[in-house]
Amino acid sequence: MTVSLYNPGEEQKSILVFLEHEGGVLANVSLELLGKGREMADGLHWSLAGLLMGHQVADLAHEAIAYGADEVWLGEHPLLQFFTIEAYAHTAFQAVSDGKPSVFLLGATPNGRDLAGRLAVRLRTGLNADCSGLRIDPDSGVLVSEVSGFGGGVLALIEMRTHRPQMATVRPGVFTPSEMDRNKNGKVIEIPLVLEEDMIQTQVVEREVGSGIDLTRTPVLVAGGRGIEGDFLMLQKLADLLGGDVGATRPPVDEGHIERQRQIGQTGVVCSPEVAICCGISGAFHFVVGIEKANTVIAINSDPEAPIFDYADYCIVGDVHQIIPEIITALRSEGEIAHA
């Protein structure tokens, strides 16, 4: 039997959350994990810690405390300015070996996954990836993770009883952050670090954030067909509010309303968003193969007989030019309430 570096008998009753950040802001997924971590810790009278690594990021530690952390373990070093797997894995390994948390949660982001995969092996422990639900059994302290496989077709509950830390990654959007509380108290604990340049093999040659069209990964696809009569500006507004992107069927592309890279379907892009909103699209098979992998499909079409409704979860018979502006208004007013 494989043995982890520390076992349940040696664990601290705490939950550790990997705090990701970009451009001086904590990632949403990290706030969401702090929210979920707080909820689970409160139920068990455990403590919640954040693992923050970077260069000149101490401010973010206080932010994490305001979002629920009792402690922030801070790895502060110039070599941690950009994510490199060597420096981050080294620092995180040291922090986890010292602090021995029972549970260690990371966002299922590109960097979160890289780090989780490395650390699980280094710590000789298990890793529940892409969890859609988390719960800690109050008697045993065992983390029960819900994961799905086979394109969401199969749900499993996974646990580890003899290995620590109990690692899990969670996709963005699964949990909700707690209310921010600037008055909350917390401790910042510096991780004693020895990092040398030659430990780092990865060299970042070039880096650009925020460019390019990648419809294959968008969480929300707002697609327009002939029925929107070229009004992609309207769809773009909706997509922006939902954090998504705009796609199209062939006819609007043909008519020059939108670039061909945004064509969805057999001869275009195959998408797998959480939500696809099909506006004024009749539902030709050539298009439909491009949205079959969407979790939820919403279709708006004035023709009640349109085949698109056979492929949709929510079907709306009506004029897209009336309905979409209403959705935009509703989203905006909801946003204002949330910010108020």
Binding site: R226, R250, P251, D254, S282, A284, F285, H286
Partner: peptide
């Protein structure tokens, strides 16, 4: 059928 129907709509 598929091609012609597309063109009729277009």
């Amino acid at each position: 059928l598929v091609c012609l129907e597309d063109s009729v709509k277009g």
